[in-house]
Amino acid sequence: MRKIILTCLFFEMFLHSSCTSTDKNKQTNKEDNIAVENGLIPSNTASLMEIKEYVLWIQDTENGFKKEKKIDDLTFSVQYKPYEYIICEEERKEELPDTLLKNKILEINNMQYYDFKISVNEGAGELLKHQLSSSQEYEKRVNYFSFMMQNDIQLVEDKDTLPCALFHFERTYGASPSSIFLLGFPVSKNKTAVEKTLLIYDRTFNKGLLKFTFTRKDLRNLPKIKTHEY
């Protein structure tokens, strides 16, 4: 008899807890959304993080804001840089005032930014000298990386294909076996968190078309940084 009563009680508790959680869900769905640069993120899912934690989170490949592709002897990676991330990297502070963050975002929010990196997997030396056949080829590569490569990069968002409007090649002069390219694209008219696919045609190392897709699901998980009022 005691067992039956206990089972009934447990069942009732289970039913009650599941009903209340459904009510909660309904309530949060009605809540306002928090607008972020990627679109609209429901307030209940946009988590708040301290600056250090936020930067590490964005740089972690598991969270979908950094994509990596190892092909043969090279690794290609793309870091999507949300505005808050750019400001954290620029300011290099552990705390940021809310007003500063908002003002800085206004300065850069007419574009969207990515870092594209090519690294040699084994061995050191300048990437530009990797599998080089002649000195003329070296000059050709420098010229291509500095000026022409921009034309081989595009960003696809839904039906929009956006050209690479901002391009900068960071030369390392042999200090590192990798090269970084800073990329900027116009902000698409569609302000919601759509899937973004970066297309890069590699003409230098004959790897062909490289695609990096930032899924809608990952973009919607973008956290916000904890700011402070001064």
Binding site: K70, I71, D72, N206, K207, G208, L209
Partner: peptide
């Protein structure tokens, strides 16, 4: 094209 496709495919 063949070389580029095969490089990525094999990887």
């Amino acid at each position: 094209y063949d070389q580029e496709i095969l490089t990525q495919l094999s990887q």
